[in-house]
Amino acid sequence: MGSPNLGLPIVFVSVLLAGFVPNEFRPTAFGYALAVTPLCPMLRIQSLTKRYPTGDIALQSVNLDVPDGQVMALIGPSGAGKSTLIRCINRLVEPTSGQIYLNELELTRLGSAQLRRARRRMAMIFQEYALVERLTVMENVLSGQLGYVNFWQSWFRKFPQGTVDEAFRLLERVGLGQFPDKRADALSGGQRQRVGIARALLQNPNILLVDEPTASLDPKTARQIMRLICELAQERGLSVIVNIHDVPLAQQFSQRIVGLQAGEIVYDGPPSGLTERALTQIYGEEDWNPERESEADESPALAGTAGERQS
């Protein structure tokens, strides 16, 4: 009766121990450790296809180059494959076929240990912030360095002093210098996203993968957050891929816009080239004129839906 119970913890402990092997790499200095050759693109995606087990095709042989230091907005309707594309890059979603290169390193071929090392160079910022709510602001920011420290250092929160200094600098930079010990669930949406940004930058990445950073924020905070991301990317010379629903916001902050429609790129050009025709191509038929007198015909429409609900 007792014998299976004794075996299991041993199995579990050995599974854990496999993860405790310290990473041989420690950060020596922050900043621009990696020399970048300007000729090759920071990120190259070649005929990337993703088919989910359900049979849905999220991406159909997508080709995309993102040069060093470019802020690229990825727009498109819900379900067009924007999130899948971003998650294929750091392989939170496994691509079905195709190649992705980061600085000439083929990400799609890496084994799990190599992938972990490569993920340190690709930081991600999430729509719902994805902070660990019961941890403090500082713990959340420092989790950006998990790929650089070993398990016990992270478990006992013994991060190298250089990392802690950098975390304080980043918190100051995103405007949360006075809150390092506040729990993440005590912050407002905008503040949480600032923690998410600090966490991402503490990874010292080459590229920022940003998934709907402003969808849960009010318009003013959304602009502040976008501005902060773009400023920080510029300061550090990072490439940025931003998934975003808000087209004017994308136009305001990005240098290049890529439109996805049903898993295929249907627009790739400057923000100024995003005409009504281009929008229709990306999103389908709609009246794109912002000066429309919408209030007049909205109220009868609302009354109509309210009436229908009773049936």
């Binding site: 599974v15 854990l16 496999a18 993860g19 405790f20 750091n90 939170l92 972990r116 090392r117 490569a118 993920r119 340190r120 690709m122 930081a123 991600m124 999430f126 994805a130 902070l131 660990v132 709510e133 989790s143 950006g144 360095q145 998990l146 790929g147 650089y148 398990f151 992270s154 998410g196 966490r199 990874q203």
Partner: peptide
């Protein structure tokens, strides 16, 4: 949050 932690390059134990 699990996805976010994994995306930093953390090990399985982390």
């Amino acid at each position: 949050p699990v996805e976010a932690v994994a995306a930093t390059g953390a090990s399985a134990a982390q």
